[in-house]
Simulated assay, not measured.
Amino acid sequence: MAVIKAVSSKAGIGHAIDYVTKKEKTEEKLVSGLHCEPETVKEEMQATKELWGKTDGRTYKHYVQSYHEDEEITPEQAHKNAVELAEHTKAWKGHEVLIATHIDKGHIHTHFIVNSVNYENGHKLQWSKHDLKDLKERCNEQSREQGLHVPEKGKTFAGEVREETVAWSKDTYQLLKQAEQGKVKSYVQDIALAVLDCKETATSRETFIRLMNERGYGVDWQDSHKYITYTDLAREQAGEKACKIRDNKLEKYYNMDFGKESMEHEFERNARTAEAEQSKRAASRVKPTEPDRAGKQSAQRSVGDVERELRGIDEAVKSRTSKGRAEQAERRRAEQEAHQRAEAERRAAEEQQRIASRRYIGRDWEPER
């Protein structure tokens, strides 16, 4: 069987690369680079950081794929599987990844060193629990396809039943185990659990502080301060001195990243997820339902009826207008004819008057004097 896990290390990226590429641990054919060359990987990763001006903070992420010592798999196949996983990990797109398979121990395992800065856009690596879950599921699918064993839920890598402590995530599990063994004080554990829980849903620094306040914890997060300080407000009000803890102390106790940069990346991911879900809900609301379509068709029919009615009215007006024009022309012709008749009658009357005013002289007519 094969398992995937994230490795938390304080070593610099150069030391990490030197370690995973040691000749006594691997062979040249078992070292590959994704978006980089193994021989110049340190220079390439450093050049990417300098190009985008991001040489501070966490410089890389470290993951390991391990096969059980009894698993029948060759180093070459294990390395091929690891390269395939890296190539299809969406979160690593645009990041240089060094892949080195070790054969110096009883079990074959492969290291992934991922540059924290994206060479395409300069963004820091965005990595969530969902991404790790996807990586593990693809690892299990590889094992199934190759007839290898798949880890059983509730059992350790060696096949033993897990201890009584149960938690939803590896981070929470580590916290609870530390508390069980008495290695940390109760209020430190409570604050750490609250931080892990609140950062899962917070979409900004302000939201995170509000959620922590609602749980009874103060958060002193200032740009001018290097660290975040958390306060158990109930213990502080009770006058207890042991009531505060800084993020760097939490990292030391639990070997986890509680720093500002990591928190803000988590908030950004949550904000993008929330925005995407909101967009989906908005899109679903504007889709027309069956009643809406029926109403639209009804409206279209109504518009058509109105248009037909208007056309009918227009034709009627035109018809009436045409008829009116014909009647007007007929009246004009009648008036003209009447005027012509009256004029003819007038002229005839005048002619009769002229004839009547003449007297007969001899054989000729002559005007009356």
Rank of each mutant, 00 (worst) to 15 (best):
L135P: 00
L135F: 13
R138Q: 12
C139F: 04
E141W: 02
Q142D: 14
S143V: 02
R144V: 14
E145V: 10
Q146E: 15
L148R: 13
H149S: 15
H149P: 03
K155W: 01
T156A: 07
T156P: 13
T156K: 07
F157N: 13
A158E: 15
E160S: 08
E160N: 15
E163W: 05
E163A: 14
V166A: 05
A167D: 07
W168H: 10
K170P: 00
T172R: 14
T172F: 09
Y173E: 10
Y173Q: 12
Y173F: 12
Q174H: 07
L175H: 10
L175Q: 07
L175N: 04
Q178M: 06
A179K: 12
E180S: 09
E180Y: 04
E180C: 03
Q181T: 06
G182S: 05
K183W: 01
V184R: 06
K185P: 08
K185C: 03
K185V: 01
S186A: 12
Y187V: 08
Y187P: 13
V188G: 00
Q189N: 10
D190P: 00
D190N: 14
D190H: 11
I191G: 01
I191M: 15
I191P: 00
A192G: 03
V195A: 09
L196D: 01
D197S: 11
C198K: 10
K199S: 08
E200F: 06
T201L: 03
T201G: 03
T203D: 02
T203L: 01
T203S: 10
T203A: 06
T203I: 15
S204R: 07
T207C: 03
F208P: 00
I209G: 05
R210V: 09
R215M: 14
Y217H: 05
Y217V: 06
Y217K: 03
Y217P: 04
G218L: 01
V219K: 02
V219N: 02
V219F: 04
W221V: 02
Q222K: 15
Q222W: 03
Q222H: 10
Q222A: 12
D223R: 11
